[in-house]
Lab assay of single mutants.
Amino acid sequence: IRCIGVSNRDFVEGMSGGTWVDVVLEHGGCVTVMAQDKPTVDIELVTTTVSNMAEVRSYCYEASISDMASDSRCPTQGEAYLDKQSDTQYVCKRTLVDRGWGNGCGLFGKGSLVTCAKFTCSKKMTGKSIQPENLEYRIMLSVHGSQHSGMIVNDTGYETDENRAKVEVTPNSPRAEATLGGFGSLGLDCEPRTGLDFSDLYYLTMNNKHWLVHKEWFHDIPLPWHAGADTGTPHWNNKEALVEFKDAHAKRQTVVVLGSQEGAVHTALAGALEAEMDGAKGKLFSGHLKCRLKMDKLRLKGVSYSLCTAAFTFTKVPAETLHGTVTVEVQYAGTDGPCKIPVQMAVDMQTLTPVGRLITANPVITESTENSKMMLELDPPFGDSYIVIGVGDKKITHHWHRSGSTIGKAFEATVRGAKRMAVLGDTAWDFGSVGGVFNSLGKGIHQIFGAAFKSLFGGMSWFSQILIGTLLVWLGLNTKNGSISLTCLALGGVMIFLSTAVSA
């Protein structure tokens, strides 16, 4: 259960009878995928790494000078000259100064003066180019299975845990398959586009800190620079940016070097996208990844198990997540596992009318040892309800109150669905055939309105939902006002479609 501690969480529900669903994975976010007769899966884009970055340009932001020398000439005696002028490691300046009897010249006039100092770069920052084909995306998957609280967001041991898996995709191999043991396998067909235009970005490294910066900004930095990788004795261009020549006297000129420019660069980098280094690879934390999940090989585990009949206890007080759902960790005293956990939410304890829904599909106890633990997640209705676990006299209950409203949740879900469709863009549509167009249209309606429909009408039977949709269509056909007619027709059509397409 990876997503319960992530604030940016998206719930995606598969269409009834569908074998695939489109998701948008982004750094700092987590996606929970639910479908009829399929286990619930949490998917998170953990890291995006980039390798084989080529150094484009380096800037010196802290330097020192040494070996200063000057040469001067009297008027009419030609130009002052130093051998160091031809050495690229030196920074030199030529000027004219007033000369006369007082400073060793027989004539009054302008004399030539040249001053040089050896330039040494102490600290530099480097910009590297990123090729999209060198990106690698690491995705962690977790099935809502027989897990306890100690396994949440624990990325170790996934090789031997059938509840978890790690997959890596690249532009050259965008397809992967996550093996989930008894739950089958989940196929991923990803489109490795981060949403960032790397043709316009460089990877900047300064003092063990890293950013993504725009090329134009990078090339306009007014500091000494050299092109390409460091060859040991780089040729620094624009050395004068960190060196200041003071007022010249008759035979000498003082040279000083400016202080470190790291603070000024940090100020200019305010708002830039931060990154990290992992050995020789860069780690990015921006952008998104679009994936199509193929769920035809994914299956529920323990459908044929019998119900657990022994007593359950709450190991922890049920807690609310950031998303309005409830996490419950229970301990089973029996030894008759594997068995299914009898769990439901009810409005009252007399009729036990089921409300809400299970995020953890078909929760089971897989071990036959005593005191096995299991964590599950529920989506309670707004208002008061009861969490009921167990059967008969051994069942345990917990009162729950959820604040908020169904309308607010439906609106929030619609906005999130619209954002998801905007990110998917043209990849969500198939114009290759008439059937493809209608299929894409259905998927689009489901992406945007599916979660809201589930919130508003999830407790009704599909037949009642179709009746309401048919009534809206009838009202649309018999209303003389054009805008009201079109609105009723659209709402009725969407409702009829979703009542037959969205899983219960």
Rank of each mutant, 00 (worst) to 15 (best):
I407V: 11
T231K: 03
M277T: 14
L472H: 01
R193Q: 10
T369G: 13
S129P: 00
Q131F: 09
Q253D: 09
V12H: 05
G476L: 01
G145V: 08
I407D: 07
Y202Q: 06
D67V: 10
K443S: 14
S142M: 06
F198N: 05
S260N: 15
V91Q: 01
D87S: 15
F198D: 06
L376P: 01
V330D: 07
M151E: 06
Y203R: 03
D10G: 06
A275P: 01
V330K: 09
N208W: 02
F285G: 14
E216P: 04
L196D: 00
E44D: 11
C60S: 04
L472M: 12
R292D: 01
F314L: 15
K281Y: 00
D189C: 07
W101I: 04
P174L: 10
G182C: 11
S286M: 06
I448Q: 08
Q131W: 15
K283G: 03
H249N: 01
E26C: 10
K118I: 01
S403R: 06
Y202K: 07
T120K: 05
A319C: 08
L204F: 12
R299V: 03
S464C: 09
E133L: 03
M460T: 13
K283Q: 00
V326P: 02
A35E: 00
A490Y: 13
E216D: 14
L456V: 13
H266C: 13
T406A: 10
D278T: 12
V12W: 10
K166D: 12
L376M: 09
P192H: 01
A428L: 00
H401E: 14
L300N: 04
G17A: 04
S440Q: 08
C60F: 07
S433W: 04
G145A: 10
S461I: 12
L489E: 11
P342R: 06
S70V: 14
V330E: 08
L82T: 04
K395R: 15
L358Y: 10
E62A: 13
A54V: 11
T414M: 08
G232Y: 04
G432H: 15
R299A: 03
P192Y: 04
E367S: 14
F198A: 02
G279D: 15
T335H: 12
V6A: 10
G458M: 10
H226I: 15
V423L: 15
F457Q: 10
L467G: 14
M460I: 15
L289S: 07
V502E: 10
G436W: 02
S503A: 05
I359M: 13
Q131P: 00
E377Y: 05
V391K: 15
T321A: 12
H27N: 10
L223A: 08
M421L: 14
M375P: 00
L491K: 12
N52W: 10
F438V: 11
S260A: 04
G287S: 15
D71N: 13
T254V: 13
K454I: 13
A229Y: 08
M206N: 05
T479H: 13
P39D: 08
F245C: 11
C291E: 05
V213L: 07
R99C: 09
G18K: 00
N134A: 04
N481A: 13
N103I: 05
W236A: 01
H214Y: 13
A241Y: 07
A69R: 14
L472N: 06
S464Y: 10
W400E: 09
L45M: 13
S70Y: 07
P132D: 14
F457V: 09
I341S: 04
A229G: 15
E177H: 09
G392L: 07
T369Q: 02
L212A: 07
R416K: 15
M53I: 03
K84Q: 14
L107F: 12
T160V: 15
V473E: 02
A268C: 10
G337Q: 12
S260R: 03
R175A: 07
E177G: 12
S149E: 00
V434M: 13
G157V: 15
N207E: 14
F382V: 07
G444C: 09
L96M: 14
I445H: 07
L300V: 15
F411K: 11
S485E: 08
T76A: 15
M349C: 01
S199Y: 02
A319N: 04
T49N: 03
H226A: 13
G458K: 07
S455M: 13
P75A: 03
Q131C: 06
F11R: 01
T233K: 14
T366R: 06
F119I: 07
I389E: 05
G432Y: 04
A319F: 02
I448W: 10
V6P: 00
H446M: 11
F382G: 01
V213A: 12
I496L: 15
T156S: 13
L201V: 15
G435Y: 14
A270C: 12
K93H: 11
F463S: 05
T40R: 03
V330L: 15
Y386N: 07
A413S: 14
E26A: 03
L456E: 10
L107T: 02
F431S: 12
C308V: 04
T353P: 00
N154F: 03
C3S: 07
A176Q: 04
Y59P: 02
Y386R: 00
G469Q: 06
V494M: 15
L45S: 12
A35W: 10
I4H: 06
L298H: 04
D161G: 13
C190E: 08
T115C: 08
P342T: 04
C291H: 04
T500A: 12
M68S: 13
M349P: 15
G337T: 12
D393W: 13
T487H: 09
S260C: 09
L376Q: 03
G109L: 03
K454H: 10
S51P: 00
T194L: 05
L223Q: 09
N103E: 05
V243R: 00
L300I: 12
S403H: 09
V328R: 01
L358K: 05
G157I: 15
D10V: 04
S86T: 09
T366P: 15
W474A: 02
V50W: 07
L204R: 07
M460C: 10
L258M: 15
A69Y: 06
E159Y: 01
M295S: 07
L96V: 14
S385Q: 12
L242S: 09
W211G: 07
V330I: 13
T487G: 14
T427R: 15
L289N: 04
N134G: 04
E244F: 08
